[in-house]
Structure formats: C-alpha cells, structure tokens
Amino acid sequence: MNPFAAIGRAVLSLLAEIGRLALFTGRSLKALASPPFYLRLTLQQFVRIGYLSVPVVGLTALSTGAVLALQIYLGGNRYGAEAIVPQIVVLGITRELGPVIAGLMVAGRVAAAIAAEIGTMRVTEQIDALTTLSTNPVKYLVVPRLVAAVISMPILTAAGDSIGVFGGYLVATQNLGFTGSVYLKNTVDFATSADINSGLIKAAVFGFIVALMGCYNGFNSRGGAQGVGAATTNAVVSSCILILATDFVLTALLFHTA
C-alpha cells in the first residue's frame, strides 16, 4: 500500500465532494430565483423547521443563559468584577451562543429529518418520479426548505436570545443577589443593535447550511435503509462542522478583527 497514493486518493475524493456540493448549491440558488414557487410547501416547512424547533431552542437557550451567568459570576469574583454579569451574558448570548446553539440544535433536528426524508425519496425513486411528472425536484424539495430555514433561524435565534438573557436574569436575581431592575437596565444599556444583528445574520447563514446539508446528503443517498442512515448522519455532522467553521469566519468578517 503506497501511502502517497492513499493520501492522494483521499484529497481527490474530498475535492470532488466539495465540487459536487458547490454544483448542488449553484443549482439550488438558480432554482430559488425562478418560478414556480411552492408557497404551500414553504409554509409547511416553516412549521416543521421553525415552529417545531421552538421548544428545543428555548430550553437550551434558557439553560445556556443561566449557566453563563453563574460562570461569569464565579470567574468575575476572582477580580471582584462580578457586577459585569448582565453585560457579559447579553454579549455572549446575542453575538455567539444564541445563534450557535440554535444552529446546532436545528442541525440535529432538521438536517437529520430533511436528509432522512429526501434520502428515502431518492432510494424509492420518488425523486425520479417527480421529474417524470414535469416537476423540478430541486425547486420542489430544496427551495422550500432553504427559504424556510433561512427565515426561521433568525426568528428562532431572536427568541432564543431573549430566553437566554432571561435565564441569566433568573439566576442572577434568585441566586446571585442582583436586583432585577438594575440587571435589566445594565443589559439594555450595554447591548448594541450591532451585537444583536450580527447574531441574527449568523443565524440566517446557519439556517442555510442546515437545510443545504440536509438536502444535499438526502439527494445523494445510495442504497437502501443503510444509505439513508449514512446520509442522515453525514447531514448532521457536516452541518455542525460547517456551522462552527463559518461562525469563526463570520465573526472575523462582521467585527473586522481578522
């Protein structure tokens, strides 16, 4: 076994995969720009992707905000800086943790569901059947999911941000001896719209990633149940990795620090 050949093969197959993903993205964006538009399907996807994700995103945001307040308090305590809890909580949640945690949760819920559904349609020839019925499968299946995810994610994140800040507020006022009105005033005075907007922009990008990876892996699934299972796993893993990677890039771009 020649190690150079093995490395070469791995690199080539990775490049081929990136190429295929780029082509798929291009096809999806092209389909997005031209009719027909499937309004009914898009609304259905709003419910599945957005509305039904509210409980998980809300719960994880609540606990993240709470634990963040506790940790900052304990850490800040070492320098006598524990009063900074509300400012750091709102900054951390809106800029970073709100969108990332919502993105990862939605990746687990939605990318998996999309990949499993479209993957099953692929292996049972339902996608081929769509083309024989004069329907473009990318327009019919991918575009509604992309649109719904890109619009839902910022809304979910905005809700998650508020719930996260509320989680911090609960812990701070109940356990750490903060006064409620002071905590809220510090929060509101400190947070800028740039903090919040940067998080919402990230959320929209993460929504795009989740829907795209779900659709891409579903479309390319092969074989039977096993192939669909592999597609589902790949969809979740790849969207999580891409979310974390683009998060860094977006942070650098949005705050011009890199």
């Binding site: 027909p36 559904e117 099953t120 349609m121 049972t124 020839e125 339902q126 081929d128 059947a129 083309t131 024989t132 019925l133 004069s134 329907t135 019919y140």
Partner: peptide
C-alpha cells in the same frame, strides 16, 4: 417530459401525499 407518463417498477408513490394527490400530481404541479 410533458409527453411522458411512467409507471415505476416499485411504484415510487409520494408517501407524503394522499392517493388522489399522487394521481393528480402531474396535473396540478406540471
């Protein structure tokens, strides 16, 4: 594609839609 109709060996029915919408699919969407 509008000239064609196809019966797939495995059926390939859309399991998210009721039977009548499967049959009417080409008429409504196409």
């Amino acid at each position: 594609m509008k000239k064609f109709g196809m019966l797939f060996q495995g059926g390939a029915l859309f399991d998210s839609l009721p039977v009548w919408e499967n049959v009417a699919f080409g008429l409504i969407q196409g």
